[in-house]
């Protein structure tokens, strides 16, 4: 156990998926890749909630899976708790998975319908050989259920997933991720399938648990509004790279990157008097395929401010423009 400030350090992490080759490419010995994650670097402090925000296909889930070690990176480095965990053997992976747990998007699909909630929660304990006897394990299950406020735990333990509402399932899923006492939880869109009236409740519960147990979260979402409320730091991803990073107030109220700005204008807000107006969306088109990343700045084909330099010169790197506020744009000062 080190006293390093950062729990997770990601350096230039890459994940390239090879595409199926055409006959011509086989003969020429070529291989093309879908660059889902193409050089991502960030650090997550202990006890911090780090939000990864972006549109679908930007590589945010792949980044989460890389950190979960569900995928092996193509390149780069992943440091967890001062240990290099980029490549792990089976034993190392076992320990790592006890420290990093995941909450999935769909609480309806992430639980075995034939398991009672107590079996769902006991499963990780059995796999990791924690808790000697059944009675001990049940005590741990109860504790975890108490932590996520599924009370009284005795009542919820015997229920099947179909007897729980969406919100209760997501609480159950959180309890399952907590049961091994992890240091970090990767939550991939944990509330996007939950009703609005209970969504805030789940986020609230996750935040309370996080404070009580001093956990670190990686919160992956496409929803900027919940990210603002929930996170301590936001990174905005576009086509496999981070384009802007900083504390929520900086990124949302004082954004520099044209992509972040466009995302923020596009978000709907419950305010009167907008119904008869056509909203200006400053960027056109949709995210290009990650198989064919544009030259230069990868955002230039959609950027309203792109100049010749943006596609002729090399890609802008993420630089610190204010304290703790990083932007990857050549022209951020002018726009």
């Amino acid at each position: 156990m080190s006293n390093n400030k950062y729990l997770v350090e990601v350096e230039n992490l890459q994940k390239w998926f090879p595409t199926r080759r055409t006959m011509g490419e086989v003969f020429k010995g070529q291989q093309r890749y879908v660059k889902a994650v193409d050089g991502v670097s960030f650090k997550i402090e202990r006890g911090e909630i780090f939000g990864l925000v972006g549109e679908s296909g930007c590589g945010k889930t792949t980044t989460g899976k890389l950190i979960m070690k569900l995928l092996d990176p193509t390149g780069g480095k992943l440091i967890f708790d001062a240990d290099d965990v980029t490549h792990l053997d089976k034993v190392g992976l076992d320990t790592y998975r006890q420290n990093v747990q995941m909450v999935f998007q769909d609480p309806y699909a992430s639980m075995n319908p034939r398991f009672r909630l107590r079996d769902v929660l006991e499963e990780p304990l059995i796999i990791h050989k924690k808790g000697g006897t059944k009675a001990e394990r049940m005590e741990m299950v109860k504790k975890a259920l108490n932590e996520v406020r599924l009370q009284p735990p005795e009542e919820f333990m015997v229920r099947f997933p179909h007897m729980l509402s969406g919100g209760q399932r997501q609480r159950g899923a959180t309890a399952r991720s907590l049961i091994l006492n992890p240091k970090m939880i990767v939550a991939d869109e944990p509330v996007s399938m939950i009703d609005l009236s209970t969504r805030a409740e789940i986020l609230h519960m996750m935040k309370t648990v996080q404070r009580e147990l001093n956990l670190t979260y990686l919160y992956i979402t496409h929803d900027l509004s919940t990210a603002r409320y929930f996170t301590d730091k936001i990174a905005v991803m576009y086509l496999g790279k981070i384009v802007e990073m900083g504390v929520p107030n900086d990124v949302i109220d004082n954004s520099f990157h044209p992509y972040t700005k466009a995302l923020i204008t596009a978000v709907c807000e419950p305010i009167a008097g907008k119904v008869n107006r056509i909203k200006e969306v400053p960027i056109k088109g949709e995210v290009p395929s990650a198989e064919n990343i544009p030259q230069g700045c990868r955002f230039h084909p959609r950027c309203p401010y792109a100049i010749k330099e943006c596609w002729e010169k090399e890609e802008p790197v993420l630089e610190e423009v204010e304290k703790g506020h990083f932007v990857a744009c050549r022209r951020y000062k002018e726009i």
Partner: peptide
């Protein structure tokens, strides 16, 4: 009223988001 309170707003800083306890 309470559903609207539970809707997160991007440009407003809130410490605690409201929610409606219970289920439909």
């Amino acid at each position: 009223r309470r559903l609207l309170e539970a809707t997160p707003r991007l440009h407003e800083e809130v410490e605690e988001l409201a929610f409606i306890p219970g289920t439909p």
